[in-house]
Amino acid sequence: MPSKTHVQTTINGEQVDFLCEPRQSLLEVLRDVIGLTGSKEGCNDGNCGACTVVFDGRIVTSCLVLGVEAAGKEIGTIEGVASGSTLHPVQAAFLEGAALQCGICTPGFIVASKALLEQNPNPTEHEIRFWLANNLCRCTGYDKIVRAVQDAAVRMQEA
């Protein structure tokens, strides 16, 4: 079998080295090689957003990135959202606002929502819904998710 590729990257601020096959997606690498299982696979074709990560400052679906493309990049995952044992305001708002039911889509929504609020601190309901249209949730009907993002916006401005 051909050999694996050595990749050096930065994940949640830490330098990480890993070996992967070029056919392995970044999502597979995060979950199966590195052991960061917070990013979830719902569709493996970019349509559910459960695997959303920050890739060099922009959110992407990690199922549509090859692991080898991570070389030299900065990657942010759900595991890097909280500061130690303190939840990020987006996490706190989701938790306290009952914005999750089964929770499988939650990591993707939190990573995407945090990215939205960092570039648009006071989004309208429509802007929130537009930004999050690449993240599917089948449990909540999105109502409490949209409200949690609105709540998080307030929390972040007060912080």
Partner: peptide, 12 residues
């Protein structure tokens, strides 16, 4: 807390 931090362990 486990579900907003990505720590909850699902089947996969």
């Amino acid at each position: 807390a486990d579900k907003v931090t990505g720590r909850a362990l699902y089947g996969a």
